[in-house]
Write a protein that binds this DNA or RNA. Structure first.
Length: 646
DNA sequence: TGACATT
């Protein structure tokens, strides 16, 4: 694609286009220009005569999977403006090509006999007109994709104002840009050479300072100094990109750009609670049910003060679940619509009864209890009796708040947990988790570049179960909603090799549930991940991550709760809400009689799976013998639970 | 109607 580059637009004939695949394609996602114009696209099936005219646009509605090039005439628009036919495809009298798919992929050409497979020379493409903004010119793009200064014909050290360094992900010139004399100058970087891709990955993953600190850190001065998640290089350009992405759908923004860059979103829970001003709940952060007899350290952070601050009222699960997690997490996705991960953020006005007959999981398993979390737990002295309707963190789930459901639940005062828990060594190892909460280190996962597909895609082909081994999967809670699988993996690779990562999404809303799973290659790495990231506050978030090792996959959850004596009208969602006030509900099901005609009738009992064993304890102790709609609930560990202890 | 089912 040398020389005469431009883009012809077919006015009123939007058939001539290159269609990018939907997100999730195998296309590289690391370029600052995202899916900017691929340099090789003329090779995607043109044949025959001299010049093609191509419109660059996107069509998110088009889901045709297979890239297909169709020859189209070029005598529209410019030549015969306004004379498009109904189908948007004119007669075949010219040499236009429609690429209905990823131009990076194999392209079959249809419409002209014998055309498929013909090679084309690099100068076959000539853009004779253009319209609107052009990805590789008007949006940030890697230098080698620049259309202003074509890489093949222009000195590489030159750059336009939208050029980025492919390696550093910063606006050109980076510190290593060079003059072009050295082969190591970043101005030569392209996504076609492994060495550049490797270097790029190294810059991203090793947190190397790229260049132009006055630019990249202007907005996030602390970014480069924090260990762990501080990987991304950012620049004010990101805001430009953010704006642009709304303008031009064909340009995928730089991967390290997220909407939250300019406006961190308010968490639903924060909003919900903020309007509730429940002073009681705001003082409490998830009291931990425990049987551990070791002395506890008095929590020192966050939860101490009585506060009406919605932030602090978002209690997080700083329980130390060591063992246990949802069952096979593929299943949790399927049940995502019923998962309310954000229930973990509610405050818990109820002191746990805490008379768990089972040994503490940490003590039982012998795993180094990652009880750093306990440092952030407060222990309410008393709990309200017959509380007012409790704010339910279900705004995001679409389940309407109906606090009347809970209004009758009484909360007997159980000022139990008082024994200080041993202050774990983990917290010392973990370092500045507490500090992190206060200073908001610029971890900015949402800024992180997405991983190179070639680094991870081999894993995607297999199910996580194939990789999961006992103790090597960690649950990650309190994820900002914009964190996706890839950025999650990219973060956790600092703890080791990420075998699999998954953010759980609500099936109905498509929104992240705010938690996910990361499978490391070894138990040791998983434990390291806990030490590194538990309690860590992602930039822009107010909630520290909760990271703990999950239980191995088993046929049945060790955290399943049986609840009976349910009022007949209690359904799954109600049950979920009921338990979500006491932890993260993975599953909640009322058992029904199935009747003919499709109707069903509750059998008055159900099963609830909590995210962790300890949360199960807490929920059991909080809800057992509570009165709901006039009926005294009976809540206990499910009989079928493989790890039932009582 | 008052119990540990279902995938």
């Amino acid at each position: 694609m040398a020389g005469s580059m431009g883009f012809r637009i077919h006015v009123g004939r939007p058939r001539l286009r290159i269609l990018w695949p939907r997100s999730g394609s195998s296309a590289p996602r690391g370029s600052p220009s995202g899916r900017a114009l691929p340099a090789q696209y003329p090779a995607c099936g043109r044949m025959g005569s001299a010049r093609d005219a191509v419109e660059i646009s996107s069509d998110e509605e088009d889901s045709r999977p297979a890239p297909v090039a169709r020859e189209l005439p070029c005598d529209d628009a410019v030549l015969k403006k306004g004379e498009s036919d109904d189908a948007g495809v004119a007669t075949d009298d010219d040499d236009c090509v429609v690429l209905d798919g990823d131009p990076d992929g194999a392209v079959a050409v249809v419409g002209r006999k014998g055309a498929a497979g013909n090679d084309v020379s690099s100068d076959e493409l000539q853009i004779v007109a253009e319209k609107g903004q052009v990805a590789c010119r008007d949006f940030p793009h890697s230098r080698h994709l620049c259309s202003n200064l074509p890489f093949g014909t222009t000195s590489h050290e030159k750059h336009c104002t939208m050029c980025y360094c492919f390696v550093c992900d910063v606006r050109a010139p980076c510190d290593y840009w060079g003059t072009g004399l050295s082969i190591d100058d970043h101005c030569h970087a392209t996504d076609k050479e492994t060495r550049w891709k490797t270097l790029r990955l190294a810059f991203k993953c090793k947190g190397l300072r790229a260049s132009n600190p006055e630019k990249e850190n202007a907005m996030y001065p602390a970014m480069a100094s924090v260990s762990g998640l501080s990987l991304g290089n950012r620049s004010p350009l990101q805001n430009v990109v953010n704006q642009n992405r709304q303008i031009h759908a064909s340009v995928r923004t730089a991967p390290n750009v997220a909407p939250a860059v300019s406006a961190p979103r308010a968490f639903p829970v924060a909003r919900a609670e903020g309007s509730t001003s429940n002073a009681q709940t705001s003082q409490v952060t998830y009291p931990v049910a425990t049987t551990v007899s070791a002395p506890r350290g008095i929590p020192t952070t966050r939860a101490e003060g009585s506060t009406s601050n919605a932030h602090t009222s978002q209690a997080t699960h700083h329980v130390a679940p060591t063992v246990g997690a949802p069952r096979v997490y593929r299943a949790t996705r399927a049940e995502g619509s019923r998962i309310n991960a954000h229930t973990s953020q509610v405050s818990y006005p109820v002191a746990p009864t805490v008379s768990v007959p089972r040994p503490h999981p940490a003590a039982r398993t012998g795993r180094g209890s990652n009880n750093a979390h306990t440092s952030q737990v407060t222990y309410p002295v008393a709990a309200p009796t017959v509380s007012a309707p409790r704010p339910q963190p279900v705004a995001r789930t679409g389940i309407g708040l109906n606090n009347a459901h809970n209004a009758q639940i009484t909360h007997p005062v159980q000022p139990t947990v008082s024994a200080p828990r041993a202050y774990p060594a983990a917290i010392a190892e973990r370092g500045n988790a507490q500090t992190a909460q206060l200073t908001y280190p610029a971890t900015a996962s949402h800024h992180l570049p997405e991983p190179e597909p070639d680094q991870y895609e081999e894993y995607w082909e297999d199910t996580p179960e194939e990789y999961a081994s006992e103790g090597s999967t960690v649950y990650v809670g309190n994820l900002p909603y914009h964190i996706d699988d890839d950025s999650l993996a990219l973060n956790f690779q600092h703890a080791g090799v990420v075998v699999f990562s998954e953010v759980i999404y609500d099936d109905k809303t498509g929104q992240s549930c705010g938690f996910g799973y990361v499978t490391m290659s070894t138990v040791q790495e998983a434990e390291k991940a806990v030490r590194m990231y538990h309690g860590y506050v992602i930039y822009g978030s107010v909630r520290p991550l909760t990271v703990y090792i999950t239980a191995p996959c088993q046929s049945g959850s060790p955290f399943e709760i049986f609840v009976c004596n349910l009022p007949w009208q209690v359904d799954d969602s109600w049950l979920e809400k009921l338990f979500s006030a006491h932890g993260e509900v993975v599953d909640a099901r009322v058992v029904y009689y199935e009747r003919r005609g499709g109707t069903r009738r509750s059998r008055g009992f159900g099963f609830v799976t909590m995210a962790t064993e300890e949360q199960s304890y807490y929920a059991i102790n909080s809800l057992n013998k509570q009165v709901l709609e006039g009926r005294t609930l009976r809540v206990k560990v499910s009989r079928e639970s493989p790890q039932q202890g009582y």
